[in-house]
Amino acid sequence: MNITLLHIDDCPSWVEAESRLSTALAGADMPGTPVKVVTVMNAAHAVALNFAGSPTILIDGVDLFPDGARASDLACRIYRTPNGLAGLPTVEQIVDALARRHRP
């Protein structure tokens, strides 16, 4: 499994997203799973990487939170969470998404 965290430097949510992703991986019995962190540099790079705003979490190149929105803009992403809109998903949302992604 290849996990990639895409981000732009101007969006501060990616730092906490990396921490939450690590916590979620441990909670999903995948501790120590490597996460590749990639800074999206420009619009062409965003399109090539399947970027949907910062932060975007990809599992084997597929957005862990697909909502149909792809971006060539270098912008922050908004997630729907149980507490309203936020700049990143909760740990629980990441754990649930990982479980859905790996159902047999």
Rank of each mutant, 00 (worst) to 15 (best):
L88T: 02
V38F: 04
P12H: 05
T56S: 06
T33P: 12
N50S: 09
A17N: 09
L98R: 00
P34D: 10
A52G: 11
G27C: 12
R100H: 11
N83G: 12
A28W: 09
A26P: 11
C76G: 07
A46P: 01
N42V: 01
V91C: 06
L64S: 03
G27W: 11
G32A: 11
T39Y: 12
I59R: 10
P55M: 05
A46F: 00
D9R: 13
L58E: 02
P89Q: 08
L6G: 03
R100F: 08
A24I: 13
M41T: 12
A71V: 03
E18Y: 12
D63C: 01
A48D: 05
C11W: 04
N2F: 06
E18G: 12
F51Q: 03
L5Y: 00
Y79H: 07
D9M: 09
Y79Q: 06
P55R: 06
M30D: 13
T23L: 14
R70C: 03
A43K: 14
F65E: 00
I94D: 01
N50D: 06
I94V: 06
T39H: 14
P66R: 01
G87L: 10
E16W: 13
G61P: 01
D96P: 07
A99V: 15
L88M: 08
G87P: 07
D63W: 02
D67Y: 02
Y79V: 09
I94W: 02
V37Q: 12
V37M: 12
T90A: 12
T39Q: 15
D10M: 13
L5V: 02
P31N: 08
E18P: 08
L6K: 00
C76V: 03
R20C: 09
P104H: 08
V38N: 02
T33F: 12
P12K: 05
G27L: 15
A48G: 05
S13F: 13
